[in-house]
Design a binder for these strands. Structure first.
Length: 194
DNA sequence: AGCACGATTAACT
DNA sequence: GTTAATCGTGCTC
């Protein structure tokens, strides 16, 4: 049953590759008796201490330690005083990098997503990194969990391959004070046609 | 101990 | 297009 869950080896590769190949994969969240899932349609890569857009630019701190650990773990952090962000740790242990999951297309558990996000039109339910963590009830308690098995109720399954011509790249979002060239690196990946 | 800021969102002009 | 909300984190004193 766990056959399609992406293994550690998937994440133990260059972050840009992982960020691109996570497009089309399915993010799955199981709560008590509900399953919520969606196809990942937008990601961003954060690559090492030299990437001044990456939290690891500050080196190994209590917050960033998880990015230095095993690939395939979840890095969940809090920002703007109210939002949780979900990342998948990438590359070999010791090298700090991760892929931010920025948007999904809901496929399962639409009713519970609606109950959490229904005040908004459907297209706005999970089209942002903090919106999808709201919809899937992901918070601090998921920081450090293994995304490569179903034990924690959160994992990622392989999906249909997305052709490169259907992937759009652009600059990462929200890096207002990050210097060039990092600010403009085309490390944001989106599916242009679902 | 204090401070500036943030990988955002929603509401408002 | 602009801005308030809101607090953990990392840095300075």
């Amino acid at each position: 049953m766990d056959k399609r869950i992406l293994p550690h080896e998937f994440y133990d590769r260059p972050t840009l590759t992982v960020a691109q190949e996570l497009l089309g994969a399915t993010l799955v969240r199981v709560e008590k008796d509900v399953q919520i899932a969606g196809i990942i349609v937008e990601t961003e890569a954060y690559v090492g201490e030299s990437d001044l857009g990456c939290h690891a630019k500050a080196g190994k701190t209590p917050r960033t330690a998880i990015m230095y650990g095993m690939p395939g773990r979840a890095y969940v952090y809090f920002t703007y005083g109210m939002h949780w962000m979900l990342n998948a740790v990438t590359e070999a242990e010791g090298f700090p990098a991760a892929v931010l999951i920025r948007a999904i297309h809901p496929t399962e558990g639409v009713e519970i997503i609606a109950s959490r996000r229904g005040k908004q039109p459907r297209t706005y339910w999970t089209d942002g990194p903090a919106k999808l963590t709201q919809a899937l009830a992901i918070d601090k308690s998921f920081n450090g969990i293994d995304l490569c098995n179903s034990e924690s109720g959160l994992w990622i399954e392989s999906g249909k391959r997305v052709l490169e011509k259907n992937v759009t790249t652009s600059a990462r979002v929200g890096l207002y004070t990050v210097p060039e060239p990092w600010k403009s690196k085309p490390w944001r990946f989106q599916i242009s046609t679902l």
